Amino acid sequence: MSPALTGLSRDELTALMKEWGQPAFRAGQILDWVWKKKVDSIDEMTNLPAALREKLVATHRLHALEAARTQGSADTTRKFLFKLHDGRYVESVLIPANPALYGERSDRRTLCVSSQVGCAFGCKFCASGLAGFSRNLGPDEIAGQVLAAERLSGERVDNLVFMGMGEPFANFEGLMAAIEIITAEWGLHLGARHLTISTSGLVPKIKALADHPQQIRLAISLHGATDEVRDLIMPVNKKWKTAELFEALDYWNSRKKQHLTLEYILIRDVNDDLEQARILATHARRLKAKVNLIPYNTVEGLDWVRPPEDRCRAFRDILKQAGVSATLRLEKGHDIDAACGQLRLKQETEEGIIEAPVKR
């Protein structure tokens, strides 16, 4: 399979042009067509010589993924299913502004981006890992989701959260290469402060990102305030216990100015006990972290259910009374299978790529 132009940095493209005997400025022209003008084909790059366009067509794809399906909901949340070169699928979700979740200007469009096909970490409530892990996404496939979402929606994506399929830190090299493209002036030119990486708790990579010069934001998929609860639903906690995780977050705070976010999916009779709220409040206050509470989004094949709304509000109120910045997100997109991996799981099961997962 030929490489995609969306995976090439300016330096790589400049080196390719030199190898082909082309002037260096051709690299800038190509990047402008790809990332700014968002063309549908290499043939549309009309300021390139015909011979160069022909060579590019023969040696490269323009895009790393193709749109397979779009689902939209009444609240304008849209989910995009993309087909990859090997026949597998990945998905992204475009979310309209939600001040209760993000707390900034009201016209923002946030894209939830995937980093892997499937996931090896097996969080018990998540659809992404139901069929196991297949592979990492390349930088072209990660950055390409953003470009494709803008082309399909006709809207500027101005906030990214790496909270889709996969564990981003398990694909650290590919993720950071994609972020270079996304933040570069010649690429999507999105400021690093508008990027949030979510991790289930890979301690070494939390510290690595803390040492990275870009001001990328960090969210922790916590979902349990104690080892006892976290062990039940998050296998990663068996390798890095909460004490190690919170020590890494202390290191983050020593290196970064951005406040941490703790993500907490509320699951009935699993982690919604109000004592968990009190313990969570203690951790969040010490870490100066915001807390996003998310009632569980039903996943076919899993038995978990969301708590009653009054229980969710009581959990939130304990955090607020303790002085923690806490929001309760009555999530968008519940009617379009918006939980991570659901749409991809249905598509690959229908096509016989994977077997229907057994309930766990």
Rank of each mutant, 00 (worst) to 15 (best):
Q347V: 03
K346P: 06
R285C: 00
K320I: 11
V324D: 01
A338N: 06
D337S: 11
V305H: 11
A284W: 03
G333C: 06
R313F: 06
A289T: 10
P308Q: 10
E309W: 12
G301N: 01
L319D: 12
F315M: 05
G352K: 09
G323T: 10
V291C: 00
P295C: 05
E331G: 10
R285G: 12
L328N: 08
R306C: 12
A289S: 05
K346W: 02
A326N: 10
V324T: 08
R311D: 13
Y296F: 09
K288W: 14
K320L: 11
L287H: 10
C340G: 03
C312D: 08
V299D: 06
A289V: 04
G352C: 07
G323Y: 02
H334Q: 13
V291Q: 07
F315D: 01
D310R: 12
E355F: 06
L343M: 14
Q342A: 09
A339E: 01
R306W: 02
R329C: 08
H334R: 15
H334L: 10
L343C: 03
V324F: 00
E351Y: 00
A322P: 01
S325C: 08
E348K: 07
V324E: 06
E348A: 00
H334E: 15
A314F: 00
C312I: 05
F315E: 06
D335H: 00
L343W: 04
P295N: 05
A326M: 01
V299R: 08
D303V: 02
K320M: 13
D335I: 00
R344L: 02
A284N: 03
W304Y: 14
F315V: 00
R316C: 02
A326V: 07
K332M: 05
C312E: 06
Q321L: 12
P295K: 11
V305S: 15
Y296L: 09
Y296S: 00
I318G: 10
R306G: 15
R344T: 07
T298G: 12
E348I: 03
G333W: 10
A289M: 08
L293E: 09
Q342P: 05
L319Q: 10
A326R: 09
R344V: 05
L287M: 13
I294M: 11
R313K: 14
D337T: 07
V299K: 08
R286Y: 08
P307E: 05
E309A: 10
T349Q: 09
L319M: 07
I336P: 03
I336Y: 02
L319A: 00
R306H: 12
R344K: 10
R313W: 13
P307Y: 06
L343Y: 03
R286S: 04
H334K: 15
I294D: 09
T327D: 15
T298C: 00
P308W: 08
Q342H: 01
L345P: 06
E300A: 15
N292I: 09
S325R: 12
R311Y: 02
L328S: 05
D335W: 06
E309Q: 11
A314Q: 15
I354M: 14
K290Y: 13
A338I: 09
L287Y: 14
D310P: 08
Q342W: 01
A289L: 06
P308A: 13
D335Y: 05
I354P: 07
